[in-house]
Nucleic acid binder design. Structure first.
Length: 205
DNA sequence: CGGCCGATCCACT
DNA sequence: GTGGATCGGCCGA
């Protein structure tokens, strides 16, 4: 049920990005649980990918976590105010990662509403990499967290709850906001669910 | 609904 | 000193 180390150690980051659709991303922050169904992802293929922070084998303190083994969180701050959550993949030494771009609230909705300025949750509130981090309580200080449920007060992990139905269609397209990446900006590394069955779960939003 | 633009701060040069 | 894997408010249509 919980995704194990071997899932994250797979070598095809694009395939992993696709497989993460429909999985459930959990956070327990200071003991409080919340979770969302992953609706949109992007693959970042390491040193050969001009859109990746690790392009050209660039190693800095910020990107170092991507050079470790898969199964850890790479979280970074952008535009001074948004924490973007990535899943590190592949074996140690290969800095691949998957950016999670959208979720649909699944568990802990009252808590997420509190994090949403106490405004009732709408579908759009989980769509966008900065927004889903806010709903789940993820911030950039959590970079390096292992993606396994454990006894800690604060943890991040992903479960497969078999939520994908026969009518859920996976769409593929270019990644967002990476115009600087030249020809790599056109790679079909973004995946999202054009959902039919999943809509049942989020019909209240 | 689409385009424009300011917010805000850390890592990197 | 610079600029970003974004967001939301404002504007006009």
């Amino acid at each position: 049920m919980q995704l194990t180390e071997s899932f994250y150690l797979q070598t095809d980051v694009v395939a992993i990005a696709r497989q993460l659709l429909g999985k459930v991303l959990y956070t327990r922050i200071n003991g409080e649980l919340s979770a969302g169904i992953i609706l949109e992802t992007e693959a970042y293929a390491g040193i050969t990918d001009k859109a990746s922070h690790a392009y050209g084998n660039r190693r800095t303190m910020r990107t170092e976590i991507m050079y470790g083994a898969g199964g850890y969180a790479y979280v970074y701050l952008i535009y001074g105010m948004y924490s973007l959550f990535n899943v590190v993949t592949n074996k140690a030494g290969i800095p691949h990662a998957v950016l999670i771009r959208a979720i649909s609230p699944f568990e802990g909705e009252e808590l997420m509403q509190k994090r949403n300025n106490n405004k009732p949750l709408k579908y759009k509130d989980g769509v966008g990499p900065g927004k889903l981090s806010r709903l789940l309580g993820i911030d950039y200080s959590m970079t390096g967290t292992i993606l396994q449920k454990n006894a800690q007060n604060t943890a991040i992990w992903i479960e497969d709850k078999k939520l994908i139905g026969p009518n859920d269609v996976v769409k593929v397209g270019k990644r967002i906001g990476i115009d600087y990446a030249g020809e790599d900006a056109d790679l079909p590394y973004r995946f999202w669910i054009e959902d039919v069955d999943l809509k049942v779960i989020r019909k209240d939003y």
